[in-house]
Simulated scan of single mutants.
Amino acid sequence: MRTILLLLTGILIMGGVLDASGEDLFLGRIVSVDHDTGTLSIFLIEEQSNGGNGKDRASAPLEVTIPPNQLPKHLSPGDTVRIWGDFTGGGTTLSAARLYAPGHGGGANDATGVRRRIGKSRSHHGGRGEGRGHGGR
């Protein structure tokens, strides 16, 4: 009993000591894109707490770096992007681990085929899902 209590106390203490820094989520509007080097210049968008649309921050554009092979090819100035990453270089550069433009996120990658099968039942046979055992009127 004492061993378990000592072990649990040690786990709790170690859990408080470890600094588990995760990626932060940022929303920004693209100012410029360089597909060759994987850098973007963006204005961060501040979310309003009253549920309204976000506003661009009035400061200078922020530089975002991401490996060029992870940078989506369809990005252009004026697009809004979601960025997961951390600040580097004293808070002047955002190092992105993932970057998505709305409407182009993970939905395009359907590894299990579930989205395709759901869409298949909706889009064929009149668009009401009536085909092949789905019932009809």
Rank of each mutant, 00 (worst) to 15 (best):
F87P: 03
D34E: 08
N53V: 08
I83C: 04
A111E: 01
D86Q: 15
A108Y: 02
T80G: 11
A97H: 14
G105W: 00
A58K: 13
R98S: 14
L25V: 14
R117I: 09
K55T: 06
D19Q: 15
K55M: 09
G16L: 10
S76Y: 04
V114I: 11
E130Y: 03
A97W: 08
G103D: 00
A60L: 15
I42R: 01
S49M: 05
I83D: 02
R29V: 05
T92I: 13
N109H: 15
L25W: 09
D79A: 02
P68M: 08
R57W: 11
S95Q: 15
L75M: 08
G51C: 06
P77Q: 05
G113P: 10
R98G: 11
A97C: 06
K55P: 03
G51W: 10
R122P: 14
G22W: 08
R132I: 01
G126S: 07
N50K: 13
E63G: 15
T112P: 02
H35Q: 05
I30H: 03
S76V: 10
G131K: 14
H104P: 13
G90V: 09
I45L: 12
F26I: 00
N109W: 09
S41K: 14
F43I: 05
D86F: 10
G51T: 06
G90W: 12
Q48P: 01
A97P: 07
V17N: 07
L40K: 04
V31Q: 09
D79N: 10
A111I: 04
P72R: 01
T37C: 03
H104G: 05
G127Q: 05
P102F: 06
G51L: 09
G28H: 07
T92G: 14
R98M: 14
G133C: 00
G113F: 02
Y100G: 03
G28K: 03
G28N: 06
E130I: 06
A96S: 10
H124L: 11
H74G: 04
G127S: 04
E63H: 14
D86E: 14
H104M: 15
G52T: 14
V33G: 11
S21A: 08
T93L: 09
G131P: 15
N109C: 13
R82K: 10
G106R: 00
H35K: 13
F26W: 09
P77L: 04
G38M: 08
L94E: 06
G15F: 04
H35D: 00
N53R: 15
G90I: 10
G129M: 01
G22I: 12
R29E: 13
